[in-house]
């Protein structure tokens, strides 16, 4: 499962824009991944300039 560390996330929206399945939305000015839509392709992990998406488990 991939979650966004909100302490690190800057709210730039890059992951939201580039997620191929539109699994990420902006919530209170930071990114939030919908685990049901996410396919774990990890593009958000690769693309985030500040390493906010974190893999768990």
């Amino acid at each position: 499962m991939i979650t966004i560390n909100r302490d690190v996330c800057t709210g730039c929206g890059g992951c939201i824009d580039l997620c191929p399945v539109i699994a990420i939305r902006m919530t209170d000015d930071k990114a939030e991944i919908d685990p049901e839509t996410c396919t774990q392709c990890k593009i958000c992990v690769k693309v985030c300039p500040v390493n906010a998406p974190q893999e768990e488990g």
Binding site: C12, G13, G14, V47
Partner: peptide, 8 residues
Amino acid sequence: EEVSCVIN
């Protein structure tokens, strides 16, 4: 502050 952006 730390800020970022990604441009395709």
